[in-house]
Amino acid sequence: MQANVIRRRAPASLAELRKGEQGILDRLDLPEDVSRRLMELGFVPGSPVVAALSAPGGDPRVFRVDGSEIALRHDTAVRLKLRPAASAAAN
């Protein structure tokens, strides 16, 4: 319980993941054609995504998903929402 109090708010989007941290993709908050393109690259709801290295300054950032590494800009990453921590942990 205590750990939960100290812990920061669970990351709500890919942009909030720390380096090496994993989250479960919940939904893509983007126009349909754009989200289709990202899904074809592996960003399918329910997939685990790990944040990896980034360009100097933190943007764009590389994400590991479905066996590949794909860089997204911050403005796209914030639109990729993660499942709340509880259900992510359950996975």
Binding site: P31, D33, P60, E69, A71, T76
Partner: peptide, 9 residues
């Protein structure tokens, strides 16, 4: 267009 910047490594 609304194509986001996506770069595969």
């Amino acid at each position: 267009e609304r194509t986001p910047f996506v770069l595969e490594m």
